[in-house]
């Protein structure tokens, strides 16, 4: 008897939470962007977050993109050898990495590593009333906590992506030169011959927005933690999942825009 009723109530609640999330994100984003440009500017906190987001993420991003380079070279080699055009592996890898794989993989790794850490940190600060304490010390938590993370993530992600691109290309270079017998100079030439400025530009521009998404989602989830340690855990999961979904959606959106704007 009650089943259909409960079903609609559930849907209604989901819609309600979704709208709450959208509104909260917009609110957080607008306040953060406003406060980013308001003095005082505290460079120390930005540096600290930049180290956490950039320098500390470098090993894992390098490792992942190196293996992506290996895998991509081998997978394309499977087909390209049938066609007898192994040299185009270099162009394919370069384009795929610079336009798509580099930015997305970096963003996903950073969302999993840095985004989760931010949510857990802010979440436990919320649970232990540290956020309230900040406010009573006349410090805006958004200015103090979100702005440095926002600035650091949106500046560091493009740089990390550059590392990921070059290391991925290097991985594929190793496979092509030492396993498939393509000459080293030829590989490098074909790689950079295939790339255009717009490939690099669109790839890097996307990551600025990915960085913003990670910062906003993880801070938002962190601020909205309820219910102690368990709540922190749930919020961290939600933060990573939401970041992943939004990054992929945003990527699709940008790919479409760039496809039509810069054909």
């Amino acid at each position: 008897m009650k089943m259909p009723q409960q079903f609609f109530i559930n849907i209604g609640q989901k819609v309600f939470y979704f709208l709450y999330f959208v509104g909260g994100m917009v609110n957080l984003a607008s306040q953060t962007i406003y406060l980013t440009f308001m003095p005082p500017y505290k460079k120390d906190r930005i540096m600290e977050q930049a180290k956490k987001a950039g320098f500390d993420s470098l090993p894992i991003v390098s490792l992942v993109s190196l293996f992506i380079g290996f895998i991509f070279a081998l997978q394309t080699a499977y087909f390209m050898q049938r066609m007898g055009s192994e040299i185009y592996i270099a162009s394919l890898v370069a384009l795929a990495l610079v336009r798509e794989l580099g930015p997305v993989i970096t963003a996903l790794v950073v969302a999993g590593r840095v985004g989760a850490a931010i949510t857990a940190e802010l979440g436990s600060m919320q649970v232990t009333e540290q956020i309230d304490a900040l406010e009573t010390l006349a410090t805006n938590p958004i200015k103090y906590l979100v702005v440095p993370r926002f600035v650091a993530l949106s500046l560091m992600l493009p740089l990390l992506t550059l590392y990921a691109d070059i290391i991925g290309i290097f991985g594929s270079y190793l496979i092509c030169v030492y396993k498939l017998g393509i000459s080293s100079g030829m590989y490098i030439h074909v790689t950079f011959d295939a790339l255009l400025y717009k490939d690099l530009f669109t790839g890097l521009l996307k990551t600025v927005f990915f960085g913003m998404i990670i910062a906003f989602v993880s801070c938002f989830e962190g601020f909205n933690v309820e219910g102690g340690a368990e709540g922190v855990g749930q919020a961290t999961t939600r933060s990573v999942v939401t970041s992943f979904i939004l990054i992929i959606m945003c990527d699709c959106f940008f790919t479409a825009i760039f496809y039509f704007l810069f054909p």
Partner: peptide, 13 residues
């Protein structure tokens, strides 16, 4: 105004 929180609410970083 100074406020003393229940668990201290010290910034642990």
């Amino acid at each position: 105004i100074g406020m003393v929180f229940q668990g201290g609410a010290l910034f642990d970083s």
